[in-house]
Design a protein around this nucleic acid. Sequence first.
DNA 1: CCTACCGATCGGTAGG
DNA 2: CCTACCGATCGGTAGG
Lengths: 197, 197
Amino acid sequence: METVVNLSRKEQVIRKAAELFREKGYAASSMRDLAQMLGIEAASLYSHIKSKEEILQSLCFDMAAEFRKSLQDVEKMKVTAGEKLKLGIIGHIKVMAKDLVAAAVFMNEHRHLSQPYLREFLLLRINYINRFKTIIEEGIATGEFKENIDTKLAVMTLFSSLNWMPMWYDPDGNIVPTDLGEQLADMLINGLRKQKL
Amino acid sequence: METVVNLSRKEQVIRKAAELFREKGYAASSMRDLAQMLGIEAASLYSHIKSKEEILQSLCFDMAAEFRKSLQDVEKMKVTAGEKLKLGIIGHIKVMAKDLVAAAVFMNEHRHLSQPYLREFLLLRINYINRFKTIIEEGIATGEFKENIDTKLAVMTLFSSLNWMPMWYDPDGNIVPTDLGEQLADMLINGLRKQKL
DNA sequence: CCTACCGATCGGTAGG
DNA sequence: CCTACCGATCGGTAGG
């Protein structure tokens, strides 16, 4: 019972912290700011969390786990590389859309993690990126994609677009995450140019 | 004479600050850190600069001015939208490549500007983005680009890719800024998919 | 969850 | 460019 209450309060703290970190950045956010947002004293925060950085760790690694899970599901599918790329993109966007605030913190503030967490985080990220790269290479191998693609550039472009989405995507707008993913995938795969018929 | 010496020392301070801001973020960078990098006392910094934020302002607005100039040159040209887009991308990348450190700070730390500078900065940025959007719209109008493009998505994707480049581009690698721009433009315009002949 | 408080560090100034 | 220093604020702890 007490555990349940504490957990939920802890989650409230982390949620509010995410909003604060997104708005001001991790380093410029003070525990006093956070306490005020929750209507308590700064010292009281430490009944729920161990440290400021523990909050950042939760946010970053929880997001990382969700991204990982999403990609894993896609990799199992027996479809073309183009399809896989599209589904990977849609999955990524859906994960972000579930919590745009946490997604923004994940992207912008992870560098304030201390060691060894930072190292671990970066390893997870490079692994995730490389798995997208593998999908693109697969598409080149099967002849679906051009053979002269710079895969590093391609995957970084993809990643940049995905990671910046929390900065401008409006969840109350009239485009739903799945459609956004479809369109982004189409743009990357087919380009802006009108195909000649 | 004295002015010349001061100016150059001021520029040294700003350069070192850019490195520091990129590495640790603006808020987490202290004037004492910066002083140490320069081999002087923290208080001595204030003979060269008015405040910590003045450094950030210099970095952000100087970069903004360079981007603006580059785009202006491209807009004057009488070429297709696709060409214009490509040249705009190359111009942007060249500006970044001239000072990757400042470019990274420009992208990641501008939000720590205080008002009214922040507002002014964001206005410059939205103007710049909109001018790229106009080029894309021009391409749609002339039939060069698909008519069903989500121009907002297209321009944000472009922008994301451009802005993340300082994070992974290796100036000592074997790809030169112009080529990188060419390839990025080709990818966005023509896509990854192999064209059917 | 609070009061009371700690040592450390911050950006910046005075005066030379 | 330095010494000496300021008031403010930081993350966090002790003890209830």
